[in-house]
């Protein structure tokens, strides 16, 4: 099973992220789960673009020219920055919900609304 360690890590991280999103009731923990799920997707994209024995695609003092694919890394960079931006926005929503309802429990917020 160890020949496929990146995929197992991806599956475990996805499992942890989805479990947190489904089972936890606290908004902050749900956002942590979203971030863990994002990390799983990023890890999967990076691992798909890996080439055996490859180096980072940078020519400055490169020891060889066998390089990994640059496009997945570029798209992961985009994904990470957008993840930071959306996390800031989500945490702002959580703070406003706490200010309004006095709790971050999603069930209690749903009860209070009706």
């Amino acid at each position: 099973m160890f020949w496929n360690l990146p995929y197992i890590s991806v599956v475990l991280l996805t499992l942890i992220g989805i479990s947190i999103i489904i089972l936890k009731k606290n908004l902050i923990k749900i956002f942590m789960g979203v971030n863990i799920l994002t990390s799983a997707v990023n890890l999967f994209i990076i691992a798909v673009g890996y080439r055996d024995g490859g180096i980072a695609p940078i020519y400055t003092n490169a020891p060889s020219t066998n390089m990994v694919l640059p496009t997945p890394q570029a798209l992961c960079l985009t994904s990470i920055v957008i993840g930071v931006a959306t996390t800031a926005l989500l945490l702002t929503f959580a703070m406003l919900l706490y200010r309004t309802y006095g709790t971050t429990d999603v069930d209690k917020i749903r009860e209070l609304r009706e």
Binding site: A56, P57, I58, Y59, M67, T71, L75, L77, V81, I82
Partner: peptide, 24 residues
């Protein structure tokens, strides 16, 4: 450019980065 990732981010896929900056 020596750094191919920067090349992809800012030149070949510059529109992605434009949208990314706008999202941020």
């Amino acid at each position: 450019t020596n750094n191919i990732v920067t090349t992809v981010v800012f030149d070949y896929r510059g529109f992605d980065t434009l949208g990314e900056s706008t999202v941020l």
